[in-house]
Amino acid sequence: MKTTERFPYPVLSAFSDDIENSTFESTVIYQTDKKDYRFTYTITLHNSTIIQLLKEHRAVLALHFECGRTFFREKYKIEDITWSDCITISGTIVIPWSRICGKTEISAFIYADDVIENYHPEGLHPDYQQTTFTMRPGEILATSGPVILDVYSDYEPIQKPDSIIVFKLDKERETGEIHINLNSDKIEVSLPKNMFDKYEALRTDKQKEGIITSLLGIPVLMEGLRFIKETVDENLSENRRYRWFRSLEKKLLEMGINIKNEENTFEAAQRVFENPYMRAADDFEKMDRL
């Protein structure tokens, strides 16, 4: 949830110097199990006035979740806190798969739960001098985030090219070039009729699988990699709705490949498909022996 950055009272946040020598930071990551997302958070708070207000239950620490795709907007109070001068709180919030999907914004807040008179937090910027504030319920003492996560339950590992690429017949064309469509759950490769018939015959021949991967799979995968590479941050959530995009992104992460830094996608494509040209050469050798 985006908040204004100009509050009529001091707020401990990364975007303001209202309160100095203090910290309110949060990180959130998620994992999936059989039916839930498990959001693991770590929140660090360093400000004695706000910690005292939390201790006295006059303020509340909460994580706020908002998923624009499913009308989901909930706050989760965090109450199990071990107190010290600088507190670090970790925990897990469980949300069922059935409630959220895609872009999810998570923000941490500390807000007044009661009327707080004479609020003058530790580290208040000298410009405020001796000014005190009356904080009313719901008014924000500290905010962090939002952390934006693209959450999906259906991660499919890439076993072989077929898992992210689908070859299909283009009924409109008898001849011509191969067309590619990246705006779908699988990368769609449309072949004109004369080519599709031949491709289907080759594809069913196990001995030629490696050759087909090199011939068609690699250039298609390069297009996919280029698409990921050129996706700017503000379009990431939109593109992650495509299953192939998520699967390939995850595969790259697992392989330690940062596609943004790759000079060319050709080499990355070979690594993703695990040395396809050597396998193709092996297939040719086997065919020669027959």
Binding site: T4, P8, Y111, D113, P137, G138
Partner: peptide, 13 residues
């Protein structure tokens, strides 16, 4: 909502 967390307010408030 510009100055308070609406979600923190109960229905009565």
């Amino acid at each position: 909502g510009g100055v308070r967390l609406l979600d923190a307010l109960g229905p009565e408030r």
